[in-house]
Design a binder for these strands. Structure first.
Length: 432
RNA sequence: GUGGGUGUAGCUCAGUUGGUUAGAGCGCCAGAUUGUGGUUCUGGAGGCCGCGGGUUCGAAUCCCGUCACUCACCCCA
């Protein structure tokens, strides 16, 4: 006998048993519906992509340490997609000729990263991706933020539970350069320090700044920079950059009907974001973390096409979303029970039993019939365990007069009705 | 890549300064109940005490190693 294989799923991946799957399905269906009410269209693509599409723009850490890479039989280098944005940029570029912009697309792919699993972090997750391609208008930003608010609303979360924090990388770049007096090549490492500003102790941040060649005066200015309010932040940037900032327009002109908070510490790790960046945070003390984020990438399709197609979007992962819903007790209850079971008292009545079941299914009732013969008592026990609310009993005596028994399992009441009326009787029992 | 915590029944967990046959609750199966379930009662199945080594008359218990899970760091969707 060879040793038995482990039943646990591969590290960092998850099995979804029916109860949990039911919760997920309910949550995601609501999200799909809401996204579609904004006119977004769903697409999908391959799990495997050429490694090159991530190498250019996604960031070093991701490609070097987190990418699942494999070689096919013809020596092509492929990766399990770690995110969807490069794939969708590829698809948009390939089909740009016959698309009418702006294009509103969404998808729900599984994405893989070689991570060390921990809370909120796994190796395979499902990420809802929402993108608008082909518009440089500030209205694209506004629409994305409105959609985010709508998504939380459909899940039962009001704006007091979360916070959209927004920044503009172009603005931040210029402001940092001018306010602190940084050379352009110093800005990116300083961004990375800013990204961790709230998580690390002050001394550590200052040390890291020194490590990037900033003297004490410059480090002090960076610290002051983190505390700038929005008007001062905008003033610090070069005038020509100020005028381009969509984030500045939204905040200054009040274009968004819903909360949005400026935060100079939001910079995000992906290299392809060019201007608007945002992250959505859970404000609960127990789960104070980034739930998801996104931003504007004005030249990502440049990898695939000479045509310039700007885009903006976000990726919402299932793990952090479920943690958020869990924290706020917003997870829907699992719904895995059939509505009805149909049973017969003796094997000769199986045919009639199946006719009754067919009639119920025709009416849209989730109906189960026994596969293995057991007594009525046993089958009713199984029905209760399954959570069925109604049992239809086909007995010899009733069958003789064209009738069946419809039993309300919750109330322990039953009625004899004509077999032809079974669907309406079951329907009204379920409606009680 | 670095550090902490935890590994005992399907699940949640007890298990005394090391002591003989390793327990409970829940779940599962069967019976009480061959035309009526959930409750109740009775019975039953189910354990390489993560794995390997060591100490000891004796190890679930102590020591070393290893693997797995988990949390955090790093980094980040």
């Amino acid at each position: 006998m060879p040793p038995l294989l482990p039943t646990a799923p591969y590290r960092g991946t998850r099995d979804f048993l029916p109860e949990e799957m039911s919760v997920r399905t309910q949550v995601f269906s609501r999200l799909y519906e809401t996204i579609e009410t904004f006119g977004f269209q769903r697409y999908d693509g391959p799990v495997l992509e050429p490694v090159e599409i991530y190498e250019a723009k996604s960031g070093q850490e991701l490609v070097e340490r987190q990418l699942y890479v494999l070689t096919d039989k013809a020596d092509r280098r492929l990766a399990l997609r770690p995110e969807m944005t490069p794939s969708v940029a590829r698809m948009i570029a390939a089909n740009a000729g016959r698309l009418s912009f702006p294009v509103r697309w969404y998808s729900h792919p599984n994405c893989h990263r070689y991570e060390k699993p921990q809370k909120g972090r796994v190796r395979e997750h499902w990420q809802i991706n929402v993108d608008v391609f082909g518009s440089e208008s500030v209205e694209a930003e506004v629409e994305i933020f409105e959609l985010i608010h709508a998504l939380f609303r459909t899940l039962g979360a009001d704006p007091s539970l979360y916070e959209i924090r927004v920044n503009d990388r172009g603005l931040a770049f210029s402001a940092l350069e001018r306010f602190v007096g940084l050379a352009p090549e110093q800005v990116k490492p300083v961004f990375q320090v800013l990204d961790r500003w709230e998580k690390l102790p002050r001394e550590v941040c200052l040390e890291q700044l020194a490590g990037h060649g900033l003297d004490a005066a410059a480090a002090a200015k960076v610290e002051a920079f983190t505390k700038l309010d929005f008007p001062a932040f905008v003033d610090a940037a070069a005038p020509e950059v100020r005028g381009e900032s969509r984030v500045a327009r939204i905040l200054n002109e009040g274009l968004l009907d819903g909360p949005l908070r400026f935060d100079p510490l939001i910079v995000r790790g992906l290299d392809y974001y060019t201007s608007t960046v945002f992250e959505v945070f859970d404000v609960s003390p127990e789960n104070r973390r980034s739930i998801f984020g996104g931003g504007r990438y004005d030249n990502l399709t440049a990898l695939f096409s000479k045509q310039r197609i700007p885009g903006i979007g976000f990726g919402l992962g299932d793990v952090t979303l479920m943690d958020f819903l869990e924290t706020h007790e917003l997870k829907p209850a699992p719904d895995v029970s059939p509505d009805a079971v149909v049973l017969c008292a003796e094997p000769s009545l199986r045919g009639s039993m199946k006719e009754v079941a067919a009639r119920l299914r025709e009416a849209g009732v989730k109906t189960v019939t026994p596969l293995d013969g057991g007594g009525l008592g046993k089958e009713l026990k199984k029905a209760a365990k399954l959570g069925a609310r109604v049992a239809v009993l086909v007995g010899a005596e009733e069958h003789g007069r064209g009738a069946v028994i419809v039993r309300d399992l919750a109330r322990s009441e039953q009625r004899e009705v004509a077999a032809t009326d079974v669907a309406s009787e079951v329907g009204s029992t379920l409606a009680r």
